[in-house]
Amino acid sequence: MTDKDKILDKIRKCMALSASSNEHEAAAALRQARALMEKHGISDTDVLASAAGEMRAKAGAASRPAEWEARLAAATAAVFGCQSLFAVGAAWADHRGQWVFIGTGARYEVAKYCFEVLLRQVKRARAEHIKTVLRRCRPTTKTRRADLFCHGWVASAVSKAEALALPEDEQKTLDAYLAKTYPSLREIKTTSRNDKKRMSETDWLDFARGHRSGADAQLNRGVGANGPAPALEGA
């Protein structure tokens, strides 16, 4: 923990005490928080944003992730009350992009963990589908149809998972973190190899096979004493 983190932590504790029913204690805590903020040049946005954090998971592409992978990241983040972003891979040695999961408490850690588990599962299922069903296809057809399988898999795996509705204060924390840490966000461009193609019966079969396979790995949210915990069937 850096010196600034320690100061922010102290300010957050003072802010929490400022809600005390004891008027004198509350006023003293608020004065101390404001004094610390002025002394160290810390804004209200800095304090609000400091309550959020992030973790990253490697993506399958450097700059344009597959559409099905983007949907998996977004759905997993939403289930745990997080925000997902895609960071292009130019800044890292292996040039692979990264999925960024942003949230409060332990939520972003759980979201990242669940995404990685599901991503491994869908990739294994994809490889098996290619081996058993698509092995004689041309490379471009094989990739396109394997993507359809993954679309079906993801749709099934997250079909029963509901997005976690965040309390207003937590949503403000996420908004502050995003504004402070990622002020220049742009909409990502995903790769879809089936957008301009009319779906054939064979294509629908690939999607259906993926949908059946994904049913074995449904993403659910379990809630325990310490907040959300992952529940991955078929993990």
Rank of each mutant, 00 (worst) to 15 (best):
A215H: 11
L232M: 15
I188M: 15
A146V: 00
R126L: 10
T143W: 08
T181S: 14
T143N: 13
E38S: 14
L30D: 08
F80W: 00
T76N: 10
W204L: 09
G81R: 07
K189D: 05
Y113Q: 11
G105Q: 09
V133N: 12
E38M: 14
A93V: 13
G224M: 07
N220P: 03
I102T: 02
C114S: 09
L48M: 08
A146W: 00
G105R: 02
H211L: 12
E162I: 04
A229Q: 15
A75M: 06
P167I: 02
G214Y: 04
D94N: 13
E54V: 02
P228G: 05
P167H: 10
T132H: 14
M15V: 12
W92Q: 14
W68N: 02
L85Q: 00
I102C: 04
K197H: 12
N226R: 15
K160G: 11
R193C: 05
L17R: 14
E69P: 02
I42F: 00
K189A: 08
P167S: 00
E38K: 15
L48Q: 10
L148I: 02
R56Y: 11
E116W: 05
T143H: 12
I42H: 08
S213K: 10
V79T: 12
M199H: 10
S213P: 07
L164N: 06
S200F: 06
D5F: 10
K58W: 11
E168A: 12
M55F: 10
S63L: 04
Y177V: 00
K4Q: 15
D5H: 06
S156M: 04
R34S: 07
K58Y: 00
R186A: 13
L178Y: 03
A70L: 05
T141G: 01
R124Y: 11
Q32T: 14
V110T: 13
G210K: 02
L174R: 05
R135C: 08
S213V: 01
R96H: 14
G103H: 08
